[in-house]
């Protein structure tokens, strides 16, 4: 047994971040732009997570929704579902929240460079994958064909409206979207996210794929990808679990011998497909 971990650092002690901007995106989600209070640059990789918190309430794990190509600030989206997220969503520009991280393993960007990329995001799964989407858009020359599939339950739950508007008309990304339940104004696709594959005749089998969405979504999307002979080695899933401590100790996010907070949240599908509780 040998050890390389830092013995001086307290892994449970957060740092303060100042909220530069807070905007409500939907009835449940608030979008925060933050900067570390000590003016240090927050260094992270697309797909990594943080424990965002507020003393007196607690901490919750969140995937970074900005790309490290954007200097000077970073972004998080909080969905109001419980005590901590409700307290965080009440924060305004100028307020402080605490940040621990970045934590875990993100997307292996170097494996995506020079390849076709397909990102499949369902609902709030767009938030962590946006870190990679924006990375690719900012360094577009480094990647080949880029397809993005996004599915939401209803038009009222569409996230990042400005981004969506841009992606819809950009030639840098082949963006397809759908909603499960349309409203009167919706003129786009209707149906679950897998129906978007009907519009894709061909995918290069070497395409690098990212999937993030509600737990039920993964196996159906993976079944679609098999039809295009995409290697399981090239599929990356971004998983959600109860990552309470974020540092591989508390046990809540454990899937067999893997800790989602530390070994993930991004996993290569071929590495976890045999872990019964993973997908």
């Amino acid at each position: 047994m040998s050890c390389s971990s830092n013995h001086d650092k307290n892994i449970f002690l957060p740092k303060n971040a100042i909220i530069r901007k807070a905007s409500q995106m939907t009835a449940f989600e608030t979008h925060f732009t933050l900067k570390m209070e000590d003016e240090s640059e927050f260094i992270y990789e697309p797909g990594q997570i943080v424990e965002a918190g507020l003393f007196g309430y607690g901490e919750i794990p969140l995937g970074l929704s900005s790309s490290p190509t954007q200097q000077g600030s970073f972004e998080l989206v909080v969905r109001e579902v419980g005590k901590v997220s409700k307290a965080l969503c009440a924060l305004k520009a100028g307020d402080t929240m605490t940040i621990r991280g970045p934590l875990g393993k993100g997307f292996p960007v170097s494996e995506f460079v020079g390849q076709d990329v397909l990102i499949v995001a369902g609902g709030i799964g767009l938030c962590p994958t946006r870190s990679m989407i924006r990375y690719i858009m900012d360094r577009r020359d480094e990647f080949k064909d880029f397809k993005l599939l996004f599915g939401a339950r209803s038009p009222d739950e569409l996230l990042f409206e400005d981004d969506l508007a841009y992606w819809r008309c950009s030639s840098d990304v082949n963006y397809l979207e759908t909603v499960d339940k349309p409203n009167d104004r919706w003129k786009g696709n209707i149906g679950v996210i897998t129906t978007l594959f009907e519009g894709i005749d061909h995918l290069d089998p070497a395409t690098r794929v990212i999937i993030c969405g509600p737990p039920i979504m993964y196996k159906f999307v993976i079944a679609q990808l098999a039809k295009y002979n995409i290697s399981e080695h090239h599929i990356f899933v971004d998983l959600e679990r109860r990552m309470k401590c974020g540092v591989g100790k508390c046990g809540h996010c454990q899937i067999n011998d893997k800790y989602v907070c530390m070994d993930g949240p991004v996993f290569r599908y071929s590495d976890i497909k045999d872990l019964e509780e993973a997908i």
């Binding site: 449970f12 003393f55 007196g56 309430y57 607690g58 901490e59 309470k244 401590c245 100790k249 508390c250 046990g251 809540h252």
Partner: peptide, 22 residues
């Protein structure tokens, strides 16, 4: 395994974060 919780003191300006066995 453990859980982490926050707890306010009697006045809502101070408190502590603790872990407990889970």
């Amino acid at each position: 395994c453990f859980d982490i919780q926050d707890e306010w003191a009697l006045e809502p300006t101070s408190g502590k974060r603790y872990r407990r066995w889970d």
